[in-house]
Amino acid sequence: MTGLLADLAIGAAILALAAGMVAARSAFTATAFFIAYGLLLGLAWVRLGAVDIALTEAAIGAGLSGVLLLTAAARLAARPVATERAPGPLLTALIALCCAAVAVAIGAAILSLPEPTPSLAAEVAANLPATALGNPVAGVLMSYRALDTLLESAVVVLAVVGVWSLTPPGGWGGFPGPFHLRVESGPLALLARLLPPIGIVIALHILWVGKDAPGGKFQAAAILAAMWLLAWMAGLATPPRIASRRLRFAVSAGAGLFLAIGVAGALAEGAFLAYPAGWTKALVLAVEFALTASIAVALALLVMGPPEEEDRA
């Protein structure tokens, strides 16, 4: 009963925040709603028994997206982009009607799902000992659906390439993102000194327990990226220039190692991304650590953005 009440409260709050976001007049208000929405969505994922997703949603959906969107809202308020004309009242009503129809159709599909639900949980449980991992989600990510994870890590690298390609003329090869003056006092200066050591330990813990409990590389990488961004915004850490070979290696090493192990599996075991028997845990751990480092660097670079026009060196 209390569970149902909690679900109803979380659901109503998420719905109210989503409606507020779409109705908001300013981008700032909408972004503030979006951060709150991300945190509440994390709670919804806990209620759905998906703690792995809850951690990711809180760290990436609310944390990193929040930093990105708040910065963007501030810069767009200073230099607005030409916007299209809003649709008239008749067209708005028509759009609302069509969107409501889509929502009702999906809702009807949810209500008419087959009973019992087809599930792969039993097969995952039966084959989990072969992966030497205790966390079923990690088993799926690193073993059964390793191809998805490999493609996903490549997408993150490509996104960094895409963001860097937006460098304005004259900025190529420079420091990523806007320059931050060193903050000497105030909450940011304090937190940027206080949090990173704690955050790094928590991230490594989440990475390490991810084998057997909720956690893993994405969550750990998001926390590490947040720690780097915190030090960057306080002017304590200057990121390397995007021309730096070491930085480029750091971004691509995880996906590269994963790909190399996949090809080695094709040669040794006859199937792409097959792990040789007895080596599974060691290889999975190697990929997890390399991917954590690469994804952390890539996520931070994505939030920092491309270099600015003038080279400040």
């Binding site: 759905l48 028994g49 998906a50 792995d52 997703i53 990711t56 949603e57 990436i60 959906g61 639900t117 087809p118 599930s119 792969l120 949980a121 039993a122 995952v124 449980a125 039966a126 079923p136 989600v137 088993g139 799926v140 990510l141 059964y144 659906r145 998805d148 994870t149 996903e152 997408v155 993150v156 994405f218 994804i295």
Partner: peptide, 21 residues
């Protein structure tokens, strides 16, 4: 799709995780 001692079917959960990133 919860079953086999898991609170949910881990396959869609892993794919949602990838999707968020």
């Amino acid at each position: 799709g919860a079953g086999a001692g898991f609170p949910g079917d881990p396959v869609p959960q892993a794919i949602i995780l990838t999707g968020i990133v």
